[in-house]
Design a protein around this nucleic acid. Structure first.
Lengths: 232, 232
DNA sequence: ACCTGAACACCGTTCAAGT
DNA sequence: ACCTGAACACCGTTCAAGT
């Protein structure tokens, strides 16, 4: 006697995210999955369980399909991460370019860029190697920033280098946001590094709400000032 | 009839890195493993097979032990990465601090820091969350840099923030070094992002040996200039 | 074309047993 | 204390079979 099959759903097509309803093998009348749905499900999973919880199995489960079904829509897990990255790139604030002065626009862009990706640092290694051709929203962000630099009188041959440098700083700073508060506590080795320990203590006395924000501001303002001098 | 056992080695203790010589279960008369040997083997493995090849199984194999033996000396694979990171930190050039002028010393430090870690970007997420108390050589690097900043007249409460900002830039730039050359090729989307495409083409015309070095130099010089103004 | 289900070749880590 | 060997609970990915 075969194991009793769970009661088949009365509805031929359930809501996209519904799990539990059994489905036989074979092509469904309408596709259940698409890249948008996969992206949304991945973002929800990341937000609820973190990047450790983002596995192909968990992603499939949240979409109510078998893991292998995902491979009809993405080539790999890295492909999923690329979809997520491009979605996030669209959330970075580039609206100030062409509206506010150049330095204010860069400030807004860089802070929002850092804030968005500080919650998604596992994507940073992916972005670093990511050909922009595969990420249209990321590309649109670059276009807006490039136009902003050009219209501000930036010499064209230096624009990409300046953006790359700012981006490097933003990505590194995004990691810093995730660092534990006591990362600079030397512990039992403190007496061997007196200058460092004194400087750490001195900074703590200032007790800003977030030391990581102080460092980011310090570096960003230096970059803005330095790059601002390049404009014609 | 039991399977024939492989011929037991005539030597009671082989050379440390030798594999193939069989060893019975039980505590060996002298410990085979230690953290230094594990670190060295890990570095060799990374250099020959890359970080994908650095698995606990492969590491154990190169040391001639069972994978579980590693756990008598490290708590986890992350612990191995920490050992590697601290080894690399000792290779970063801080010798110019206190010898050359401040700006030249920062330049030397930042370039060598980037160069060392651009070959080891998978460590960057680990470093970001790494309490310095567990990494003595990394801590020694911070001490040298901090002393250099202090002796150059840097206000003490800003030293750590400035180092953190420089480090963020260095880590981000280390990733950029690994990017493929055509990362900014917009492909079929080129006509939708004219400003970006023009700026990318314009930079290519300058044909520097390494665009990543141009961007790093541009950002680093801005940071050095900006931070230099903070000195008393 | 797009799904299921079984299978593959891994992973890092744990733990009893041995000396 | 420090090793072996077996086992565990995963991973991402492939592929034949089904509609």
């Amino acid at each position: 006697m075969p194991a009793p099959t769970p009661a088949p759903s009365a509805l031929p097509t359930g809501p996209p995210a519904a799990a539990g309803a059994r489905r036989r093998a074979g092509r469904p009348t309408a596709a259940i999955l698409d890249q948008d749905g996969i992206t949304t499900a991945a973002l929800e999973l990341i937000s609820s369980k973190g990047y450790d919880g983002l596995t192909m199995a968990a992603l499939a489960r949240s979409l109510g399909v078998a893991p292998s079904a995902l491979y009809n829509h993405v080539a790999s897990k890295d492909d999923v991460l690329l979809l997520v990255e491009d979605h996030l790139a669209a959330m970075v604030d580039v609206t100030a370019f062409g509206v506010e002065p150049w330095d204010a626009a860069v400030r807004r862009w860089a802070w929002s860029y850092r804030d968005v990706f500080s919650e998604h640092t596992p994507l940073i290694p992916v972005i670093a190697v990511l050909p922009v051709a595969n990420a249209p929203k990321t590309l649109a962000m670059y276009e807006a920033v490039t136009a902003g630099f050009r219209d501000a009188g930036f010499p064209e041959e230096k624009i990409i280098s300046a953006i790359v440098a700012l981006e490097a700083f933003v990505f590194g700073a995004a990691y810093d946001v995730t660092a534990p508060e006591d990362i600079f506590d030397a512990g039992s080795l403190a007496e061997q590094v007196p200058n460092f320990t004194a400087a750490v203590d001195r900074l703590a006395l200032e007790n800003h709400p977030r030391p990581t924000d102080v460092a980011f501001s310090l570096g960003l303002e230096a970059l803005i000032t330095g790059f601002g001098a390049l404009r014609g």
